[in-house]
Design a protein around this nucleic acid. Sequence first.
DNA 1: AACGTAGCCAACCGCAAAACT
DNA 2: TAGTTTTGCGGTTGGCTACGT
Length: 293
Amino acid sequence: MGRSPCCSKEGLNRGAWTSLEDKILTAYIKAHGEGKWRNLPKRAGLKRCGKSCRLRWLNYLRPDIKRGNISHDEEELIIRLHKLLGNRWSLIAGRLPGRTDNEIKNYWNTTLRKRARPQSSLPPSNKSHPSKSRVKRPATESKTTDPPLAAATQPQPIRTKAFKCTKVLVPAALLPPNENHLTDSTTINSAHPQAHQNRFDNLKVDYGNEELHATFSRDANFYHFGCDEVQASNDDGKGNCSYGNNFSMVFDHSMGLDEPTLEDWATYNCLEGDNATIDLGSLAFLLDSEGWP
DNA sequence: AACGTAGCCAACCGCAAAACT
DNA sequence: TAGTTTTGCGGTTGGCTACGT
């Protein structure tokens, strides 16, 4: 498939952005909005390629970016999400408001990777120059070309590339009246998670490819987990289980089919009020599970 | 003070999928 | 439907800084 470079590289600025360039880009985007990155530099009068402008805006200039130290809670969330999602930084960043995928990726590679590494597999600390260790990272660890930690921490392979599933076919019985049966974002409300689980058994999904199908089949426990956990946590010991009346499961197709449970904790268990403050402690039931992939 | 090394992070690169024609 | 363009993503690089010798 032919593909032209995003822009001619001749005569373009590279490297660090100047404050003037930042101002120009910010002003242009405020006036015209995001998008059309390819033409943006020319229209804005910047000697940069569109990709560079996009990156600068997304990772640095956006007004909603939260800068500064990553809190302990954020750290824990990153670790847990990485355990779940692998190196799908954009997806992880999507759950950390104000943080960018690049920032999280950098933070992981520089700070968190060693923490997530199982103790038993930690390399001996700085054999050659113990005194030179700067605490943050073992000296024996290469800067950028480590084998993916995911391989060491993931019980099973994780797709490192995000993929999109654009079509999900939901049986009519699952949808409220007048609901479109072919939808990009379908919310299923159920007063009873067990019924909800059974409904998933009948859920027809347009996987799009065999790999995804296989993955989904393999990850079937992923769906069941949330339900089981809810059931366990609400069992009154007499065989009766109570559930909220608004158990909600949202498919996030851009994250692949192993996402409903993630969304579960967001919609069902972890978000409170309009500001949707995340109760990190409530994630533990999901992420500390032995059966978690 | 000079040098070497490691850590941090902004920016770049190439690829793949989505969107468009 | 096929070809092309645009967008978004993850991996990688390289400059700057802090620290140790």
